[in-house]
């Protein structure tokens, strides 16, 4: 008995900070938000229980259209990030000389040493009407008039892809590192061309990494506020901005928390559907 209790003590000591962190900063506020999302003010100014906040989302097209748009863009961003990251990860693990591998991974990591805000402003300096790219295009005579490259969906998508790339490349690096080179050689020897090797060998092998990278990128993109807000401009409304508006602009915390929970639930459903479609298990993907 005593020995058992003794051996568990260090575990509790080390677990306490993380449990406190989880409970006080994540579980408790969420429970409060959940309670708030079911409260509305009735005609007499009293707070009563209701699901009206949730119904509001489906009643007003602006809300669910914004959400659909956000989810669609998040899927596009995830897909584009994957398309760019897979060759990058393949190059680092299989093509680059071994002594450069660490250096190349470091290059990927470097932009993440500065905050997202600074990175987004960096892009803005490059892309805006009076920015660096326009300056050179004008100077070389390619353009006569400066073009506004910011504040549209393309700029926003690019910014989001740039922000998410690392989170896709890292899991891909680890799965591709495990890919035996002789599998690729064997496929080649059996008559494959490069596209069939990618499609039949590399992608199936990398599937767990693709799934875990995609989940992280999708979640981060869906919950991103800064990049769509700064680079997307007025026409590219992101769902997080709707939540922000409810909390800060309309001061309707009850509506805002209902939206927050809807975002959580629907994004979880999309990920669940994605895992089912690609035949992956969550427990295997998060390893």
């Amino acid at each position: 008995m005593l020995a058992g209790a003794k051996s568990k003590l260090p575990l509790f000591i080390f677990l306490t900070p993380i449990l406190l962190w989880l409970f006080l900063l994540i579980v408790l506020p969420h429970l409060d938000l959940l309670r708030m999302s079911f409260r509305i003010e009735n005609d007499y100014g009293d707070m009563i229980w209701s699901v009206n906040n949730y119904l509001e989302f489906f009643r007003e097209p602006i809300y669910w259209l914004t959400f659909a748009r956000t989810a669609l863009y998040a899927i596009i961003v995830t897909f584009l990030t994957l398309c760019i990251s897979l060759p990058v990860a393949f190059y680092i693990t299989k093509v680059a000389p071994p002594r450069f591998k660490g250096f190349l991974s470091l290059l990927l990591l470097m932009p993440f040493w500065v905050s997202e805000l600074v990175r987004v402003y960096g892009w803005m300096i490059l892309l805006r009407e009076s920015g660096v790219i326009n300056h050179f295009l004008l100077k070389w005579g390619i353009l006569r008039q400066p073009v506004e490259m910011l504040y549209n969906d393309v700029a926003m998508t690019m910014g989001l892809v740039y922000t998410s790339m690392l989170f896709m490349v890292v899991p891909l690096l680890s799965v591709l590192d495990n890919l035996d080179d002789s599998l690729i050689e064997a496929a080649f020897d059996l008559g494959s061309t490069t596209p069939t090797i990618v499609w039949k060998i590399i992608i199936p092998h990398a599937m767990p990494g693709i799934a875990s990278g995609s989940i992280v990128v999708f979640m981060l993109t869906l919950g991103n506020y800064l990049t769509p807000n700064l680079m997307g401009g007025k026409n590219s409304l992101w769902f997080t901005e709707q939540i922000y508006n409810q909390f800060i602009a309309s001061f309707n915390w009850n509506q805002g928390s209902a939206f927050g929970f809807l975002l959580l639930i629907i994004s979880s459903l999309i990920i669940f559907a994605g895992l089912k479609l690609t035949n992956q298990k969550l427990s295997k993907v998060v390893q």
Binding site: D180, E185, A186, I201
Partner: peptide
């Protein structure tokens, strides 16, 4: 070629 570790496709 039959590879040393056979290189059968596990997928």
């Amino acid at each position: 070629l039959i590879f040393q570790h056979l290189a059968l496709f596990p997928m």
